[in-house]
Design a protein around this nucleic acid. Sequence first.
RNA 1: GGGGACGUGGCGAAACGGCAGACGCGCUAGCUUCAGGAGCUAGUUCUCGCAAGAGAGUGGGAGUUCAAAUCUCCCCGUCCCCACCA
Length: 960
Amino acid sequence: MPKYNPKSIEKYWQNVWEKDKLYRAKDKSKKPKYYQLETFPYPSAAGLHVGHPKGYIAEDIHARYMRMNGHEVMYTMGWDAFGLPTENYAIKVSKSPQEVAEANIKNFKRQLQMFGLSYDWDREIDTSSLEYYKWTQWLFIELFKAGLAYRKNAKVNWCPKDQTVLANEQVVDGKCERCGSEVIQKEMEQWFFKITDYADRLLDELKGLDWPEATIKRQADWIGRSEGALIKFSILNSKSSIEVFTTRPDTLFGATYMVLAPEHDLVQILRPQIKNWSEIEKYIEQSKKKTELQRKEEEKDKTGIEMKGIKAVNPATKEEMPIWIADYVLMGYGTGAIMAVPAHDERDFEFAKKFNLPIEEVVVPNIIDQKNPPVQGKKIVERKNIHAIVRDPKTDKYLALKWKKFNWTTFPMGGVEEGENVVDAAMREVREETGFVNLKLKEVITGQVRAEYFAAHKDQNRVALTTAVVFDLVNHEQNDISQEEKDSHEIIWLEKSKLNYEHMTHAEIGHWSKRMGSSFFTYIDRGVLINSGKFDGMDSEKAKWEITKFVGGKRQTQYRLHDWSVSRQRYWGVPIPMLYCKNCGIVPVSERELPIVLPKLEDYRPKGKPPLAGSDDFMNTTCPKCKGEAKRDPETLDTFVDSSWYYLRYTDPNNGRHIFDKNKAEHWMPVDLYVIGAEHTVLHLLYSRFITKFLNDKGFINFNEPFKKIRHVGLIMGEDGQKMSKSRGNVVNPDELVNAVGADTARIYEMFMGPFEDSQPWDTKSIIGVHRFLNRFYNLFKNNLQNTNHKTQADSKSQTANSSLDHVLHKTIKKVGEDIKELRFNTAVSELMKLLNEFEKNSDNLKLKIKNLKLFLVILAPFAPHLTEEIWMNVLGNKKSIHLQKWPEYNPNLVKEKSVDFIIQVNGRFRDSIQLPFDSPQETVMNFVLKSERIKSYVPDQKEIKKVIFVANKLINLVI
RNA sequence: GGGGACGUGGCGAAACGGCAGACGCGCUAGCUUCAGGAGCUAGUUCUCGCAAGAGAGUGGGAGUUCAAAUCUCCCCGUCCCCACCA
């Protein structure tokens, strides 16, 4: 056997596998299908870096394992070849995008193939090929026919550098996701897909998917469903009214002013009535100029201006309300107008504070006092209460009353009398109950609290609406108090830490300590209504719909999700298959005419209008309906449309007559495992689900979720711990890597780096460890086979010597299989390494059983497909590929431990261990434990043992 | 501001209630090779000790438990996502 030389064997076996079509997925196999998908790459000019193949290698190992376990695996690769970066690169190097894309694909394919990935290359697809985009166009027409593709004039995100529209999802921090330019808003007519029609289903049907929880949550948040109401506010002396969306119609009685977004139509309509128009105009101009970033910075300091001369009317209270415009209200959500309820919305609260607008509290928390619950049958008395919280600044303690007749500790407290304000009432109660006279007001705690309790001293149930007032004690000057007060309680001082329900009687106390000292407290939770006319006392959840009904509003579900903008004013994409006919209007191209070919253009650069618009050959055509003159659509489709259905095309990639064969798609789909970067959780996954549901609705497929199971692959960072990028100069090239150590080493290293879903920094030095492992593995065979040839099979002596090896081997077979299934490749590799160490320990006498060596070889095969194939075929002389072998079954008897190291603990601390047979009962273990000299030194007298904890096959713990 | 993930040797990491640091890198010593950047053997959390051994130890603090890296709460730190969504 020669030395292990990956270079000479890897290319060789890759060619053999390709020639033998070893990894083809058969549509008509009797085996159970398993569809593995991974994000098809965008073939950029830069080529791969070592991070890209991580997910691919993982899936390859998994795919090989599934095949070995009797599945018909479809594992595929293709190219998301349309798109801006390729076009931009082509402009830079003065080539056509077609040429550039072709070269990039070739390079990507070469780089991927050198890792020995077991793709079914017969199913390769390319979104920029005629055969593929014909069906992208067909899909567009189907969406159009279903009323789900429509044109509308809309403000769009426009990237001035790339000269194209971007979807909301492609704008990151106000900047173009691709080039980083500041995105501006521009009014344009655009194609949209009506994904919002599917919002509920996209949200509800997330349930039950085997996806990472965080991904499901992010997608749900993105869809952003909220339940609320649409409510109309009339405007005095005007036919117009303001409609708002609110999730809190229960707080309508607390709405004290209205706010319109600066772009709101009504602002222009009401212009004649607005007295301070010049100021308003200035404000609108200013906010238009603000970038996203500036708006965000202002979050804490809101701006706005009142529109003088107009008033709205609160439909619940009939009171007049001022109308403001402010850019904290966004045109893009709800109706672009709000009713402001400063008492129960933090943003409105800040705004109201800044501009001195009225704040009206209408919802208060309601507590049923658990310590003194209302007693059935007793009279119910409603009261307005105060609690006086008095601090002595010298001691930092708080004044409280310890009641003599009851087990109560309370603040000075009492009712607010007619015409009295809460501060006066609180001071009066302190004086009457404690005699202290010199108090300095610190704060009136924001917001009241409602509590229901039994007032034993008055023998009645109370419903108290309480305000807490906080004072500092100026000095200890004290007047005399009445005998009655003296008899009922004594004065005590409490530390701040005791101001809780555990130490005090007030059920409200939790609210006080939370709110104390916070001038910006706003109560936003549910509760009971006050100051709301006939709705007083009603639970706020119930009141939402009662009040909506009361004012003639209607229930409404609002989504954060917007329709998907799909037009792009660039060249390198799928032409939109639509016509504009003078007579018939917007007409889809007839299906026979598909594909509408993207023509080769001499000059395809963006010039503010779509490049295709400049080609008369392309633009001029006839209408399929009236045969009159018509123009084509010069725009191209967002590439996310291309990738929203590619996984379906893999199931029938060469179908020229249909987008795919229904039976084939239904056979292979849904995808059983999709490995995808966490960055795709919103865009691609959402769009794909939408398209799948649409095709399901139209009867093209019988399933409505495309991806059953999703797992994310963690990034490989540069050696500096930063994300790999050209600009940082920390990119590691896979060509050099594979050239230096071979594909098998590269594969195993990437799997060994750490948990698959985590990101880890690349460490060139560490690769050698894996390389050594494969070298030693190879040498193990070399050394053993040279001897077994003439020594034949192992003799009986070696059988016993090997029995511990059998045990480890079968345990490894079990563990590695489980690890691959759960994508725990790092521990799978370490198990294989441990197994090799074990083999080497036992190979002194060169008597390893060939059967065992073969088992090891087979379980290593998914990880190191080339090396294992080389040994399997060329060294062991097999005729059929190792990759067609079955995954070995482990022998459960051999996996079972024969003996275990029992841990002996005294008081939970490790003190000794003993080897005992597996499944030894407690008595046996205890017998040995008591013989241990070491244990005797810790437990001199058995009688001291209070308790024995026995965990079978693990430990025994003596508690003394 | 909100949400999520995470914090373990010099490094990547294992263990996920039961001997912390498996496996690998690096490092140290020895052997080996004509020489090496290769190979083999032993050691490698910290403190005390020649050793046997003892003690400490998983960001910090508290708690639950016979037993906590693992469960609970608080604090600190890192990363990611969303961000005035009415």
